[in-house]
Design a protein around this nucleic acid. Structure first.
Lengths: 347, 347
DNA sequence: CTGAAAGCGCTAACAG
DNA sequence: CTGTTAGCGCTTTCAG
């Protein structure tokens, strides 16, 4: 077989480049790294040799020897294909890239065990830092790493068992805005459809919902709570059920983008759809006229990455929790009447 | 400072684990790797020592020594936040994970130069393989790597200058289905709004469009071509322009998900919207009633990853090009009449 | 300005 | 079953 045709696994080494350029290994290293104290002519010769051989520095060897962490940061999210998460990834990637760091993204499917495995893998790869949207409750092993000097920043869902940096959304305010808006439009039978209750964000949103309802003197809100609705299909089912019960809600609040999608499907052909507000803005929500509690997942990723970078640069201040702002975007879906057919009849 | 409090950068090594367990380095290595010929008791002692120290194997060192490539595969896409790409990532990640490989995703913004830099970085990290949705035209440097034994698989857009594995969508059929459908509904003034003409997929789609129109005897189609429309805002503008021209198209074909989104915005409040078919299915297209040429980006990622894995396992067969099927999903948007107000008046 | 020697943390190849 | 020796490709240290 022609050697130029197939040359399996044979990356040329720096030593080979040095030999071809007629210099020592160390000189080649210096030239290739743009260090000072290399004669311009020598440097040029080395560069030519490297180009000729198609040399590519072995970063693994470099990082091993220099003792440095890998110039990469791990990001653990639920599912890259979910826009909420992929926007986080985008924000983090942008920020990291500006600092010469590579992002390694992994999907946990919101499974604590898988999350644990992924963290272990990333740590074995000696990532410089970790960004994690956790779905686990035990983060002791992460704390060990954090104390060893690996910055760990929690996104969206703070660790509840350890003190660590976190960038989270202002859930209470977001839910408050939505509920108050609906209450202001005289809705009383407001349903809330939530994702896995073990996720802290979901518990926070539900708590804020309950608080607002109770404060408004609506004692019956618990009847209209649906939790642990984890995918679009389940959300669709949950909303259909709510709407086919004897007493129907006049408004529905969905606690994340997937659930909102499910609700939209359930209400698609409904003769008298309830008012709807969803947590998380999404693509085309404007065209569909869906009111939402909006925030910026991309900013979350960006700020999280910035936090990792700050820690890497020696910021030793106590862990902080950054709170991302939310806004209520009112579109058509929240304008539907609080008076259902049945209610009107009674009036 | 309390050493258990802060212990910067100090990951325990296997040597330390061995010392604590009272065995040699090699024995520790064997135990930790689950190799045979280690006394169960010894193995257990090593494991305990490792756990006690919070030991994490340094994968970089392992991979360096064993000469193996890094157990990771690089994926270069345009933008993680674009669902088309993030679904590819999802499919690839799933497939790779089943084979113990980690996915490293990087966004190129469809910029050839950035793509080149990203490839270089990944190669320096000695990824086992590369999946790339290229926006470059020169892939010579990639071919060098391919011959060195790094599997390179092109997704969506095949390399035109080198022979390499590729997984692509059946663009010609997809466009054909859409155009024939519109022609069948008596549309003649069909506009096509395309993305960057330097992307091969876009050229293919435009070519297929032209071929179908010409075959149908519609000679005026070139008037309704808009190309190099790269983002949602530009697409919205392009469609608005088309619709405010003296002679308006009665139907619009958009060549990818972003452009479709822009078109929807442009047509949002249009009194007499043209028929619309978009390439790429998207979330909620059903609720919006948008007809599309559908395919599976996730499958593309999965098949691409499978190809890399096959190559890694020694498959030496000639490079192949896999063609992904497409289907036309007819929803409301393509049912709009080919007779615009003006046309009707003339009749 | 350049080079020789040592070694990052681990595993391969041999001994025992 | 266990240990010793060498060395992956590179950078650090220290001499020229």
């Amino acid at each position: 077989m022609n050697p130029s045709e197939r040359d399996a696994g044979s990356h040329p080494t720096m030593r080979q480049v040095a030999a071809l350029a007629g210099v020592s290994l160390k000189t080649a290293s210096r030239a290739l790294n743009g260090e000072t104290y290399v004669a311009p002519a020598t440097a040029e010769r080395v560069r030519q040799a490297a180009a000729q051989l198609g040399f590519r520095r072995n970063v693994l060897a470099r990082e091993l020897r220099s003792g440095a962490r890998s110039r990469s940061v791990g990001l653990i999210i639920g599912d890259v294909a979910n826009p909420f998460y992929s926007q986080i990834a985008r924000g983090a990637e942008r920020q990291l890239r500006d600092h010469g760091l590579q992002l390694i993204t992994a999907s946990s499917d919101d499974d604590p065990e898988r999350e644990h495995d992924l963290v272990a893998e990333l740590l074995e790869r000696r990532v410089s830092g970790l960004l994690v949207v956790t779905s686990a409750t035990d983060h002791g092993y992460l704390d060990v790493e954090r104390r060893r000097g690996t910055p760990v920043v929690f996104l969206d869902r703070p660790a509840e068992d350890i003190v660590a940096d976190a960038v989270v959304i202002d859930n209470a305010t977001g839910v408050g805005l939505a509920v108050e808006y609906l209450l202001g439009r005289r809705h009383r039978r407001i349903a809330i459809v939530g994702d896995l209750a073990r996720l802290s964000t979901q518990r926070e949103r539900l708590a804020a919902f309950g608080a607002a309802m109770t404060a408004a003197g609506v004692g019956t809100w618990q009847r209209f709570v649906r939790a642990d609705v984890h995918d679009v299909a389940a959300a669709e089912r949950a909303v259909r059920e709510l709407m086919s019960a004897p007493t129907r809600p006049s408004a529905v609040f969905t606690t994340n983008n997937r659930i909102t999608t499910g609700a939209l499907r359930a209400l698609r052909d409904h003769a008298q759809p309830p008012a709807l507000i969803g947590f998380d803005d999404f693509d085309l929500a404007d065209l569909l006229g869906v009111s939402v509690v909006a925030h910026s997942p991309e900013l979350m990723g960006q700020l999280g990455a910035a936090r990792v970078i700050a820690r890497l640069q020696g910021d030793e201040s106590p862990p902080i929790r950054e709170l991302l702002p939310v806004t209520l975007i009112v579109r058509e879906s929240s304008e539907r009447s609080s008076r259902t057919r049945a209610a009107r009849r009674r009036t």
